[in-house]
């Protein structure tokens, strides 16, 4: 494998087969998947259930080996100890020991990286503040909500401040405030040249975070490219305007489109999204009269 390759993550013609002995059969999880994740880029991996997203993450984290093709993390085999020091992986369902506290788990993770106690303590405090774990840091994780477990899983992925982050459904189950915190932090990391591969069924999150997209279906990549290119609908135009006599003007525009044999699909006033409402109601500075 090339040692001069500094691409954080590279998939080249990757095929992954899963074989079962009884009954004897082979299932293809991924077929000829190729993409690159560059420094400072957030790539969204989207697709329906069973499309191969988690398999892609596990290959990138070195938990699976490709049946064919190449997966490289900074030019290294993903399962190698050096590659694992350069990446942070958060599984879709981060299993946490019920009777440990987040602090204990994070210290354990820090030990695997050979960090000193002082380093670990400092990092635990940082992540606790970042992910709002403060009140939960010394409580057993047995009774944690799904969202809180996600935050802990994210903390384990971020613990070593890796240049490559692999986040499988990081925002699923996280409340809007927590999700906003996480999204802001991920954007901040990308600005600091971290590479982030993220998957989510919440497409608005993907849209908000990612600069590129890889769309999978049944183990095959059906589309990839920059978000702007993919999201641009070339056969449709959206016009947003405001004017003193907007109703009259709107009628005139619709009439003009009809004269030119065009079609108006919808007209209406733009709405704020629910996340904004939540942030105003429950986020920092909450309590002011909501502007609906």
């Amino acid at each position: 494998m090339s040692t001069g390759d500094v691409t954080p993550l590279r998939f080249e013609e990757v095929r992954k087969e899963f074989r079962s002995v009884l009954p004897r059969r082979t299932v293809v999880g991924l077929e000829r998947l190729s993409f690159r994740l560059r420094a400072g880029e957030i790539v969204g991996l989207v697709g329906p259930n069973g499309s191969g997203k988690t398999t892609t993450f596990r290959l990138a984290a070195g938990l699976l080996r490709p049946s064919r093709g190449t997966v490289a993390v900074m030019g290294l085999a993903p399962g190698s100890s050096r590659a694992r020091r350069l990446q942070g992986y958060m599984p879709e369902q981060p299993g946490v020991p019920d009777t440990l506290t987040p602090a204990e788990l994070l210290h354990f993770v820090g030990r695997t990286f050979g960090m000193s106690r002082a380093q670990r303590t400092r990092r635990v405090d940082e992540l606790s503040e970042l992910l709002a774990l403060g009140g939960f840091l010394r409580r057993r994780m047995g009774g944690f909500s799904k969202g809180m477990i996600k935050r802990v899983g994210l903390a384990t992925a971020l613990f070593n401040e890796p240049p490559l982050l692999l986040l499988d459904e990081p925002l699923e189950g996280v409340d809007p405030i927590g999700a906003a915190l996480v999204k802001d932090y991920l954007l901040e990391l990308a600005r600091k040249q971290s590479a982030i591969l993220i998957s989510s069924h919440i497409l608005s999150d993907v849209e908000a975070l990612c600069s590129s997209l890889v769309i999978l279906n049944e183990g095959r990549m059906i589309l990839s490219g920059s978000k702007d290119d993919i999201l641009a609908l070339h056969d449709m135009v959206v016009l947003r305007f405001s004017a003193p006599n907007e109703e009259e003007l709107l009628e005139a525009i619709e009439q003009l489109i009809a004269e030119r044999e065009g079609t108006v699909y919808s007209t209406g006033r733009p709405r704020k999204n629910l996340e904004d409402v939540f942030k105003r109601l429950l986020g920092p500075g909450a309590g002011r009269e909501p502007e609906l």
Binding site: L63, S81, M90, G95, T112, L166
Partner: peptide
């Protein structure tokens, strides 16, 4: 095991 074994 996924969470832990993705570490070194």
């Amino acid at each position: 095991s996924d969470l832990v074994m993705s570490k070194p």
